[in-house]
Amino acid sequence: MNPIVFYILCFIGTGIIGMLASWIDRKVTARVQWRVGPPVLQPFYDIVKLMGKETVVPAGSSRITFLTAPLFGLLSVGLVSTLIWSSLLFNSGGFQGDLIVVLYFLLIPSTALIIGGFASRNPVASLGASREMKLMMADELPFLLAVAVPIIHTKGQIQLTELLNYQETYGMIFTSISGLLALIVAIICMQAKLTLVPFDIPEAETELMSGPEVEYSGPALATIKLTRMMMLFTLPMFLVLLFMGGVKFVGISILWSILKFVVLLVLIILIRNTNPRVRIDQAVKFFWYPMTFLAVIAVILALLGY
């Protein structure tokens, strides 16, 4: 297949699966709260509706920064998903060091939101953006330490396909003690990266309305929502790739692959539905002390070979 066509298909496919994941999120939340919940096409309608609305740029804001920041977020999550798809589908995809590239690109959606929030000249958005920044600083350290565990297991491989090949031969990484610890840390960090409850401090609905995106409307808001939906697919898939041996699309293993993704997704939805929101200082303390400690233990265990 022509690589360009494949990359575009990856982008569109991630968008569609992201919308489905977002629907699963809303539906499971509704069922937990004993409601019926929205129809399957709801995220699609939301995006189409926002695309058709007027874009309001607040007076005195930096127009170009305000409108382009969401686009950078969408582009980077698209790049990450393409890298992950090409490693998952073709064993020869990717390049040396693409794990590092993925880790860097995963930071950009949050950064774009911070820049857009500050550019909108709204006090609530600024507050949300500064909280988002603190949250990013808090969850990055344990997340990187957790990602170091598969690298140590594979004796220093930083290519996604090499990690998959290793898990093909020696079994999934999360079946070892260090891998399991690292997976737990990574799931909790993923919760913060997706800014879901208990770590939805940047967009705390009851106090900050919706944080950095408060001034966004129309297509720009649709871009932010789409980025969020695509992150809801990309991050769990990244963890499936790192710790659970990736996915395969042949025979019965299709079901097994979908199960891995859906289990991770439903796990974060259930965490989201059974927890209250924490304060930003509590979140930073939580990530820098217990989570980092756990991640360091996982790294030490991995170095010792467990």
């Binding site: 809303r26 509704a30 409601r35 019926v36 919940g37 929205p38 129809p39 709801q42 309608y45 939301d46 309001v56 609905e205 309305m209 919706s210 408060v214 001034e215 966004y216 409307s217 808001l221």
Partner: peptide, 13 residues
């Protein structure tokens, strides 16, 4: 929410 109605916090949304 089954009709797609969501309460939002900002008039921009």
């Amino acid at each position: 929410e089954r009709l797609g109605i969501v309460l939002v916090g900002s008039p921009r949304h």
